[in-house]
Amino acid sequence: MDFINHQLFIKDINVHIDPILPKKTAIITHGHADHARFGHDHVIATRQTIDIMKIRYGDKCAKKFTPLRYGQKYSIKNYDFTLYPAGHILGSAQVLIEKNNHRLVITGDYKVGKDETCKNFKLVKCDTLITEATFGLPIFQHPDPKDEIQKLIRSVKINKNNCHIVGAYALGKAQRVMNLLRQQKYNETIYIHGSLEKLCQYYSKEKINIGKFEKVSSKDKNFYEGKIIIAPPSALKDRWSRRFPNPIICMASGWMTVKQRAKQQGIELPLVISDHSDWNELLDTIKKSKAKNILITHGQEDALVYYCKKQNLVSKPLSIQGRSDEEIE
């Protein structure tokens, strides 16, 4: 596995996985901005990830695109690449790299739990596993997202004169929250921040059930009483949110597990809904992958490295520049 370095760069064939800076060949695991960037020569990714990159950065964000289906093999010299579902967001993938009978899996961001907005995670056995560790502490044990979304629905019912603004990342989390609301029979129109519109339209086009939505427009203030509005987290603190009547500020994120974090961010209704694996899912994936060599990328890597060493697995942290804990999801 020494063919790949700590920057997820394969020097031999000049291929990067999720590079931060423009490169010749880039395999992109999913469309979030800390993984998918503008300006590569050649992007290899799932069709949906490529679509999302084009929506966000324009059709010419790379010179050449190679879409891969899940499970379809793609070879460069003696390296074989295959993408498998990561269950993180629509189009997200793990990357299996095979070389001389050595199997290496880069999980990218992933979650094991069920999610109707994307293909669910598939476990891939390997020799070396490079796993994420966003929630790599045993305090993170994500609850059932249905119960969390019920909290929101209940609060909407009780607080009829307030509007609920839910902070959720524009790509993935926002649509997941909408889908969860639909699963729980919330059938009202959901109002969205302008920056979510194109991505929501794309999800609808891809036949993900996010129901009826409408962009927030400056209507009469009281119009939004009793409504649910979804906005990127950055908009919660912005002047944008002041236009609403008695807003109750909510946030859908795995970080909401910790009350003190919610309080710091001024969140009144925390919803623990995560698109990353929790502690037990991380351990379970490591175990079932049968990998003997575990590398751990961004997040709370210390505890997971400690755990792996205790299980007699070779393990070390892999610090990838540009991704620090708590800024990502």
Binding site: I139, Q300, A303, Y306
Partner: peptide, 23 residues
Amino acid sequence: VDQHLFDYSYDYVGDLAETISLI
């Protein structure tokens, strides 16, 4: 819980009651 794993968690959460309740 393994003591080291608890200590990593406590360092992260910064509140004894919350760390214990979650872990």
